[in-house]
Design a protein around this nucleic acid. Sequence first.
DNA 1: CGAAGCGTTGAGTCCGCTCAACTAGCGTGG
DNA 2: CCACGCTAGTTGAGCGGACTCAACGCTTCG
Lengths: 274, 274
Amino acid sequence: MNAFELTRGSPAWAPLPTPRVSFAPRATPLAPSARCSVRDVLRWTGLEAWVGTVNDSDWLPTRRVQAEQALAHQHQSLTHFYVVGAGSFKLVKVDDEGFEQVLGFALRGDVIGLDGMNEQHHLCSVVALEDATVALLGCEDLLTPGRCQPALARLLHHAAATELQRRSDTQFLMAAASAEVRVARFLLSFGQRQQQLGCSASRFRLRMSRRDIASYLGVAHETVSRALTLLAQAGYMAVTQREIDILDVPGLVLMQKQSRGPSPCAALKRRGGA
Amino acid sequence: MNAFELTRGSPAWAPLPTPRVSFAPRATPLAPSARCSVRDVLRWTGLEAWVGTVNDSDWLPTRRVQAEQALAHQHQSLTHFYVVGAGSFKLVKVDDEGFEQVLGFALRGDVIGLDGMNEQHHLCSVVALEDATVALLGCEDLLTPGRCQPALARLLHHAAATELQRRSDTQFLMAAASAEVRVARFLLSFGQRQQQLGCSASRFRLRMSRRDIASYLGVAHETVSRALTLLAQAGYMAVTQREIDILDVPGLVLMQKQSRGPSPCAALKRRGGA
DNA sequence: CGAAGCGTTGAGTCCGCTCAACTAGCGTGG
DNA sequence: CCACGCTAGTTGAGCGGACTCAACGCTTCG
């Protein structure tokens, strides 16, 4: 047990007891002091192959953030990218009227701040959903060809591509007509991310509130509630507070694919009544 | 008049007669032969400042694509990034069931293929909306630190950041409850992109069909039609086929901000009746 | 214990989707 | 030349789902 798994006393779902996955296998989550090795950062981001190319004594500064606290504010000057080492964040954009829109969530290995590269400002606020720690990467160094290690340049590209990929998925997700489908897709994709972190893809704990999910999906928070209830009644999953246990992954995948069918909810209700 | 403005005989809205904008001011749109200079590519992408750093005799191969033809197919191996030099494209993702989802549109200066960097495959199909031309950038060279000019490395970062920024906007756009607001936001953001290309932000010609827009916005194509009619009746704009003339930009900006108001459409109808 | 916030559930309204009919523009071919 | 088919776009009628409003458990924290 390391310092970063007792972030808030919340048990969460334990990582797989058998760390047999060779892909991102429980990278050591941050050094005890206020710095961490470049190697660890590469492991978090899934660049295991590049660990050998960097010096063992390369360190990066880190920063801790308490739950509910902001790591960065929208419009704030962008000096560092952040690599999440522990905990999780939500990315929030707020418009002139004060309307908040959740644009995404960041877990371990995710790089924060890439979207602000051009403007040199953060395009959204970054709020910790639980106690968290990040490693700092200086933008200046990272973006100057000569002053950046190949491994970190690679990290930058990798992170950007991953982020773009994820945004595509989000767009696809939001195009779904039915609210149930949106929630189903969200849970499946969240499960996949959990799996990449060495945890179970079907049992996990949501770190964000229903309101956050609702904002992210573009629906009312009551609708998220109803959808979860419905999906549970249909036998796809068990929901206890923020604990999610997907019982029928194939079935959920199947129903989630009906992006614009006549009435995916009807099928749900039929299944629920049976 | 150059070779690339008679791509299809379509007049389009003429670029601003006075090219006083110092930002992306009508960069020479591609050499007549099947290659173009790196300098031009830098100009298209808005990196005017970097033009001086590259050799005048640096050339890139190009490729022409006819309207309706695909520049790349989903899942196809990714060997090059493409920089749009003339024309426009739509980015389409199609799922297992054959349902098509438009993820975005690419105009001059946009870089295509960045989202596939990790998987080495195109994540979506790229279809020309009109006759178009692109410059080719070898992925291999671009992603290898030593084998890439600083200006092109910068281009890569710039393009990635721009794309991320745009996806955020799209997410914000799709979170809007009302269909009218979505359409209004789409038109405003499209106008901004037109302006960055040296054209008018309020008068332009849409290159994509109503169906494409509908898919992009996540609504039915009839709804796009109705929304356009409504916005026109309200006096915000004039619509003739695919020609858009926004008459009241401030008004449109104002109404578009009501992302979740009680009923933005009601206000519209009131305004329309008066 | 009260206050505050999260989450769930119910009732009613309204918006957007589906289906359908109709017009307009375009190209083909009898 | 015009009939014909095809596609894009517009408009209408009706229905269903999501939002709004509201009330009520539940947990957390001062």
